[in-house]
Amino acid sequence: MAVFYYFNVQVLPDSKEHGFIGKSGYKQIFTYLSQETQKNMSNKTIGKIAVKLKNDFYFAPVKIEVKDNYAQGYFRKFDQITSLKDFYTNSDVEFRGEKGLVTSKAYNFHFVFDFKKHILAISDYENRLPAPSVLEKCFEELISLELDKVSTHHHVESIILKDGTELKTLLDAPRFKSINSSITFSNPEDIEEFLEENVLERELREHGVNKLGATFMAAAKGYITGLPKVAKAILKLSTKFGDAKGQYWDTHADKYKSFALHNFPVKIPLFRNKKMSDDQYFTDIHSSIEDADNKTKG
C-alpha cells in the first residue's frame, strides 16, 4: 500500500495585470511537459530535464498522460552510473550502456495533477520519496521548464499541503511566546466567499501582494494572550498556501513547547487491488485530491 503526499503547485502572475492561467493554462503546461518527457525518453536523454538531488540521484517525469481534468503518470528517482567494480579485484566491470543511460537504483512514483485545484498527488513506497522540501523545489523547476511556452509573466510556487487539524495545538493554546507564519497567494478559484481568512487573501492579492509573512512575538519576559484575528486567518491559510511555527504554552507539560506545521503533511494511504487497472488506480488517486484539500481545513 502506498502513502500519498499532496502539493499545491501554483502558477502565479508576476503582477496583478497579467491574471491567472486557470485550468486551461495548467493543462497546456502538462501537455508540453508530456511531449518533452516522451521525446527525451525516446532519445534516451531524460537527464536533460532531470532535477539533480543529493547523493548523486536525479528526479524526472518518465511518463505523462494528459486527461480532460488532470494529468497522470510517473516520476522516477534514479542514479546514473558509468562503471561498475568487481568486489574482489576492485577493477572495472564492463557493461553495455552509455553515460546517462544506466542506473543501479531507480524508483517509480505514481502522480496525478488536478488542473482546476492545481494540486499534485504523489505516491511514496518504503520512504523512497525525496523530502517534501526537496520535492517542492523539484516541481517548481520541472513546471518552469515549460512555463515560458504559456506565459513569460508568471512564476511557479510549490507548497506541500499540511493537516489543518494539527492547528488546534496552536489555536487552543492559552498563551504564546511567538507565532511565525507565511502564505503565498492562490488562484481565484480557491476563494471561498465569506470566510474571513480568504477575504484577507483576496484583498492582499488584489493589491499585488504575492507573499505575506507575519511574526507575532511577546516581550522577552512576557507572553501573548490569545491570537489576534489576523493571526488566526493567516494560520488557517498556511495549511494550503504556506507554513507556520510557534512557541505555545502546553498546560499538561506546564511549559512552553515548539510547534512546526511542516511536520504534519497531509498523508493519505491508498490500497491498490491486484485486479485494478492503472487507469482505475489513477482515478482513485485523483479522487483523493479532494480529500487532501479538505484535510487542510481541519
Rank of each mutant, 00 (worst) to 15 (best):
N273S: 14
T283G: 06
D14F: 09
F7Q: 00
I285V: 15
H286Q: 15
F282V: 06
L212V: 12
E206C: 11
K23C: 10
D250P: 03
S151L: 08
S151I: 00
E196W: 09
F109L: 04
K236D: 05
E94C: 11
I21G: 00
A214H: 06
F115C: 04
D124L: 07
N294R: 14
L147I: 04
L145M: 12
D124S: 10
G298V: 13
K236M: 06
L12N: 05
I234D: 01
F216I: 12
S258N: 14
Y70K: 04
H110D: 14
T152P: 08
V199E: 14
S186F: 03
F57S: 04
N294L: 15
Q80K: 12
T225Q: 14
L212W: 01
F113C: 09
K177C: 15
F241M: 11
F57T: 02
G242N: 02
S151N: 05
G298Y: 08
E166I: 04
L167V: 07
H286T: 08
A50M: 02
G242A: 06
N90T: 09
Y74N: 06
N198T: 15
G222Y: 09
H286C: 10
Y248F: 09
N90C: 11
F78L: 10
E203Y: 09
T82S: 15
A173L: 06
Y88N: 11
L171A: 09
E201L: 05
S34K: 00
P13G: 03
D114V: 05
D190P: 05
H262W: 13
K23P: 07
I234G: 02
F241A: 09
K211P: 07
V266D: 02
S42A: 15
H154S: 01
G222S: 10
S158L: 01
S178I: 10
I191E: 07
E146N: 10
A231V: 15
P269S: 10
E201G: 04
L129K: 03
T251R: 09
F95H: 10
A2F: 11
K99Y: 13
D86P: 01
F59A: 03
I289Q: 00
A231E: 03
F57D: 03
A253W: 08
Q28G: 13
N263Y: 12
